[in-house]
Amino acid sequence: MLFDDGKYVELDAGLSSPNPLEFVDRKPYSLRLKEAARITGMKDAVRVGEGNISGKPLIVCAMEFQFIGGSMGAVVGEKIARAIDRCIQKQLPLVIVSCSGGARMMEGTISLMQLAKISASLARLDEVKKPYISVLTNPTTGGTTASFAMLGDLNIAEPGALIGFAGPRVIEQTIHQKLPEGFQTSEFLLEHGMLDAIVPRPELKAYLAKSLDFMGAWNSDETSK
């Protein structure tokens, strides 16, 4: 969608989860993975592509909500970390489009560690001064917000998206109050200083190309040759 002519090279599509905890609740996690794969045609909840935007190269990671709520386990963590490695190595800008309920419960604390792993990788991307734009779509919550989704050089969101740390139901249960109208929407976050801009989907591609250019994404220097 964001790439020129919809063309890109997919990276690390072959990574899948071995169910490290051997997690079984009412249904084995391995079965949930199979069903999610059948619905989405993906092996896990993020697709990583390298291609061009307005004729200039970049890497885009796009999360898929249909795959177990877009949740982040070790495969999502590894694919995004590799994408960042590649951006550093090839001097490319990065865009991550989040749509995720957060860390994946079925991979337990291993999922939690992916927050730290990706955030530490983003710290390395800072060092090479290549821009990263985080695009938050509906919904982006939990561990995803509490790591890479809030760490963009720019954080931008689609209009009306639900964005937060805790889910609205959890907050209501904790404080025993109804939440105010519009709480945890993109507009609420913009008002509270957490977003750089709200950008509707049809304008997204042009916005990204322009902003990445402002941040010198494609300025050539000696090291990038």
Binding site: L115, L122, A146, A166, H192, M194
Partner: peptide
């Protein structure tokens, strides 16, 4: 766990945690 409340969300609970995760490794 981190406090799930209105004020916490308004003041950027997710951003606070995320920023620590990026800065502490440095």
């Amino acid at each position: 766990g981190a406090y799930p409340g209105i004020g916490a969300e308004e003041r950027g609970q997710a951003e606070a945690i995320a920023y620590n995760l990026k800065e502490i490794p440095k």
